[in-house]
């Protein structure tokens, strides 16, 4: 695996890359980083995909916005990332907030998106979005007894009790590495009215959902809106499935990007 930075208007964007073949940009959920794809990179590469996992601005090692950005602003940075990587066209696979960024990008830049994969599409109702936006941010203030870390870990495990402890650990680490603006990604996702962009997508699109994901319930509605999309349901899993089951996830994605092996 190789890592690097791309220059963009908001500063440096960090990425991890593996493999050769058709390029596939991987966009993580909030508040992770490209580490989410750690276990999927080599399997994707072995299937002949050039996998490029991006640290969304404000996460991992990427520079941040100076204000809470919108999903569309994240998508605009993605254009600069593609320019910096010399890619006129690529496939995109986004998970949760990453799926929102993928939808916003694909609907605005149809000529630049070969194929789109969205896993866990956060197509919330306006009521649910307003409710989530009203929730207070988690207090990151460090405590000498380390309880700021263990309490976050406990909460993260509580929302996804079937995930591996390793995944919950790395979600906690990524959350604190993102720092006091860790909520930017969720804020953008809950502000984002995805429905219009979903309707406008012209690229061939695969929707992945796993039955153990909190966003699985949104599948029927998406299917109703876009019966022309391809759908794939994975049994079980959590919203850490990309980290916990990277090899299988990579196969599902590669089957769609380069064809069934």
């Amino acid at each position: 695996m190789r890592k690097g930075y791309v220059e963009t208007p908001i500063g440096q964007v960090h990425y991890r890359e593996a493999g050769e073949g058709p390029p596939l940009l991987l966009l993580h959920q909030t508040a992770w980083s490209s580490i989410q794809f750690r276990n999927a990179m080599a399997p994707l590469a072995s299937r002949g995909v050039r996998a490029i996992a991006i640290d969304t601005p404000g996460y991992g090692m990427s520079d941040n916005f100076d204000h809470p950005p919108s999903i569309i602003e994240y998508a605009t940075v993605l254009s600069s990332v593609m320019d910096g990587l010399g890619l006129t066209k690529a496939s995109i696979a986004g998970h949760h907030t990453g799926a929102s960024i993928g939808a916003a990008f694909a609907s605005r830049n149809p000529a630049r998106v070969q194929k789109l994969v969205m896993h866990g599409v956060p197509l919330y109702t306006p009521e649910r979005r307003a409710e989530r936006l009203a929730q207070p941010h988690f207090d990151q203030t460090p405590k000498a007894d380390g309880s700021h870390l263990s309490s976050r870990f406990q909460r993260a495990l509580g929302t996804t009790p079937k995930a591996s402890l390793e995944a919950v650990h790395w979600s906690t680490v990524n959350f604190y590495v993102a720092g006091p603006t860790e909520w930017y990604g969720h804020h953008a996702a809950f502000k984002y009215d995805m429905a219009a962009d979903l309707t406008a997508i012209k690229s061939p699109t695969l929707i992945i959902s796993n039955t153990g994901d909190t966003l699985h319930a949104m599948m029927p509605q998406i299917q109703k809106m876009r019966p022309d999309f391809t759908y794939k349901t994975i049994e079980g899993g959590t919203f850490h499935i990309v980290f916990d089951d990277g090899a299988n996830w990579a196969n599902v994605v590669a089957d769609y990007i380069v064809g069934v092996a």
């Binding site: 380390g146 263990s150 309490s151 495990l157 402890l165 919950v168 650990h169």
Partner: peptide, 18 residues
């Protein structure tokens, strides 16, 4: 240091650094 379900691996290590 493997993670533990109550997050105590994090608290304990942080306390150690303190």
């Amino acid at each position: 240091i493997p993670p533990e379900s109550d997050g105590s691996h994090l608290a304990r290590r942080f306390q150690g650094r303190v």
